[in-house]
Nucleic acid binder design. Sequence first.
DNA 1: GCAAATGTACTAACTAGTTCGTACTCTTTG
DNA 2: CAAAGAGTACGAACTAGTTAGTACATTTGC
Lengths: 228, 228
Amino acid sequence: MSTPVSTSRTKSRDGVSRVQDPEGTRQNIIEVAAQEFALNGLSGARIDEIAAKTRSSKRMIYYYFGSKEGLYVSALENAYRQVREGEAKLDIEGLPPLDALKRLVEFTFDHHHQHEEFIRMVMIENIHHGEFLERSGVIRDLNVTAIGNIEAIYAKGLADGLFRAGLDPLEIHWQISALCFFNVSNRATFSKIFGKDVGSPAYQESLRRQTVEMVLRFVVKAEKLGGV
Amino acid sequence: MSTPVSTSRTKSRDGVSRVQDPEGTRQNIIEVAAQEFALNGLSGARIDEIAAKTRSSKRMIYYYFGSKEGLYVSALENAYRQVREGEAKLDIEGLPPLDALKRLVEFTFDHHHQHEEFIRMVMIENIHHGEFLERSGVIRDLNVTAIGNIEAIYAKGLADGLFRAGLDPLEIHWQISALCFFNVSNRATFSKIFGKDVGSPAYQESLRRQTVEMVLRFVVKAEKLGGV
DNA sequence: GCAAATGTACTAACTAGTTCGTACTCTTTG
DNA sequence: CAAAGAGTACGAACTAGTTAGTACATTTGC
C-alpha cells in the first residue's frame, strides 16, 4: 500500500532494526485520512481516530499537516492525483471516433465505480462548496486535461460526418460525468427508495450499457445510429 | 415561510399578546434544522447554532425531537415530503408521450435546480449510506410513485410506436435523476475545475436543453427523431 | 388543578491542537 | 575518525474550548 521513498535504517544493539521513514509516514497518514474523511466527512472525521489507525501518531499529523483542514486538503489533492494517474492509462489514440467515445464512457463508468472513496471525497468537497479545492490550486490543472480527450474525439467524429455539429465538448463531458458519478454517489438512497440493489453486478452491467448507449445516441447523427 | 397550524393566544396584562404554538414551534425548528444540516452536514451542524436561529430554544429541540439524530431524521422526512408535494403539481395526463416526457424532464431539471437544500440533504444522506432514510420508513413510499409517471408515458409511447422497446422505466428515471441531480450537487467542483460558472443562467439554459434532448434521443426511435 | 410547553443554568464527555522531551541521522570539526 | 552540534522525526501527556444532552423550576392553556 504505502511506498517508502527514502528510508534509513539503524540496527539498535539488540539486533532489531528500527526505521525512520518520513515519506512513508506522510503517505500512510494521508491514506488513512482519506479513508476517514471519505467515510465521515471533514467535521465527522476524528483526528484521534485517524491517528490511531495510522502507523504514526497525532503528533505527526500536526507535524506534517499543521491542522485538520491542512490534512484534509492534502488527502483531497492526493485523491485527485491518484485518480488522474489512473485516467492517464486510457489509450484511445488510434481508435475511430465512435469506438473511442464508447471506450471513454465505459472507462469513466468503470473508473468511477472502482474509486468510490474518491467519489465520496468529491461529494464532501461539494458539500463544502468546493472551498478547499479552490484553496488548493494544485488540482485545477489535473482535470482540465480530461476534456482534451473528448475534444479530440468529437473533432474526429465531426470530420468523419458521424457526429452531430454544434455540441460543446465540455457539455458532453458534463453528461458523461453526471451519469457515471451519480451511479456511485447516490447508490445508497436510490437503492433504498426503490427497494432494489442498484449496485448489484447485474444492474451495474445494465446501467453501464445504457450509459454508453445514451451518450452515443446523443452525439452520433440519427441516421448513423445503426450500429449502436 | 413557516405555517402555524394550530395557534392559541392569550393577552397578558400589559396588552402584549404571547403565543403558545407547539405545531408552529416544531415546524420552525425543522425548517431551521434543515437549513443547517443541508449546509453543514449531520456532524457539522451545531445544535446550539440551530437553537439560536430558531424562534425557540435548545430545550424545545430535545423536547420535541429527543436527539440530534432524531431532529435530523425529521428534517430529512420533511424535505422529502415537501419535494414530493411539489412534484405532485406536475400535470402531464393528457399530453402525447413525447411532450409528456419532455415536460417531465424539464420539470425535474427545474425542480432540482430550485431545491438545492433538498439535493444537499440527499447528498449528506448518501454520505451516511442512507442509514437514516432506511430508519425512517416514512420516506420510501413517497418517491416510488414518481416512477408511475414514467411508466405511463413509456407505455403510451410504446403503443404509439414512438419509443424503442426493451427499456426499463426505472432506468429511465435513473438517467433523468442522474443528469438533474448532478447539475446541482456537483456544480461547485465542476465550476471550479473548469473555471466556468456552470450555474449561470445562460449555461443552465443550455444544459437544460441538452438534458431534455439526451433523454428523448435515448428513448425515442431513431427514425422518429425529426422533431427533437 | 393539571398537563403540556418553555426558560435557565448546568455537566460530562469529547476534540482540535500544544507542550515538552527524546531518539535518530547527518554534518562539521579537531 | 571520533565527538560534538544541529536539525529532523517522533512519543506521551496535557489543555482550553466546545458540544450534545439534562435537571429543575416556571409559565401557559384548558
